[in-house]
Simulated assay, not measured.
Amino acid sequence: MRSVLGGGIVALAGLCATPAHAADEEIQVYMNEFNDLHQLGLDVHVNYVPSGDRTPDYTGAEIGVHRLRVTPEFAYALDRHFELGAYLPLTTLDHTGTFRVEGAKLRLKWMGSHTSHGFFYGLNYELGRVDHKLDQNPWNNEIKLIGGWEGDKWIIAANTNIDFAVSGPAKGPADIELATKVGYKLTRATTIGFESYNGIGTVRNFGAVSASDQASYLVVDTRIGAWDLNAGVGKGYGTNKDDVIVKFVIGVPMGR
């Protein structure tokens, strides 16, 4: 199974080498989380940029600074290894106070192992269509390789994200990002940690770190009653125009 998935990733990256932008409606490192079997789950992704560069990335692009993004993510586990997900809808409240619905995305996640202790690994595939204000290319794909380890006190995870456009006027080589997380468990309900999202170039210019977006976050994961919360404050650097980013992932109890 893993060899087939690996071969498919290489083939897609080579055949569809086109640019995509980081899915900044979702600032999250995938770990060993998996929805309850045959139950609908909901995470709400929220992020806000209080300071940064006001220059748009391209003509007609939405400016990131002072923009609030709120994206519900629904999930449904088909079995113990496959999970369907939908980011629906992608919404923004821009610096002028204008509210917009700007797209939707679907995903399919496969987890080979996702126990609460020990090694875990998996793969996530995402396809979405977004408004021109978010991306010059309306249809985009992402392949995410997931891996990590969880112990009694520490959890470590890494994602390799390969982003490429399906259609649009600004196609180019697929972007590659390495997202990592290290967390320390203060209690059974609360973990503090560090997340880093580092562009490492494209499939044709691998290792071009200085020409890519970078961001690092101090984060806390906790549980408040039946609600789960990931909260973080981050700093953008490299080519990232967002100086300070505040982000939340809110796990909404559905039927619990």
Rank of each mutant, 00 (worst) to 15 (best):
T202Q: 02
G193Y: 14
L218P: 00
A104M: 10
E26N: 08
Y217M: 01
K133R: 14
L68R: 10
G201H: 05
E25Q: 11
F119C: 00
T55A: 06
E73W: 04
R100E: 10
V209H: 03
S167P: 00
V46D: 07
F194R: 02
D135C: 04
E62L: 15
L37K: 14
Y197W: 04
G148E: 08
G183N: 08
Q214W: 11
N140R: 07
F206D: 02
A189F: 07
G234P: 05
L68W: 12
G232P: 01
L12S: 12
Y184P: 01
K247M: 08
F82Q: 01
Y58E: 07
T222K: 10
D163F: 12
R107I: 00
S212T: 10
T239H: 10
L90N: 03
H132V: 02
I146C: 02
P50T: 08
G238K: 05
T191Q: 15
G128L: 12
Y217S: 04
S3W: 11
H21E: 10
E26T: 06
R69L: 12
T71Q: 07
A75Q: 07
G112M: 04
E25R: 04
A86V: 13
T187G: 06
L178M: 15
K235A: 10
T187P: 01
V219Q: 14
G8I: 09
Y58M: 02
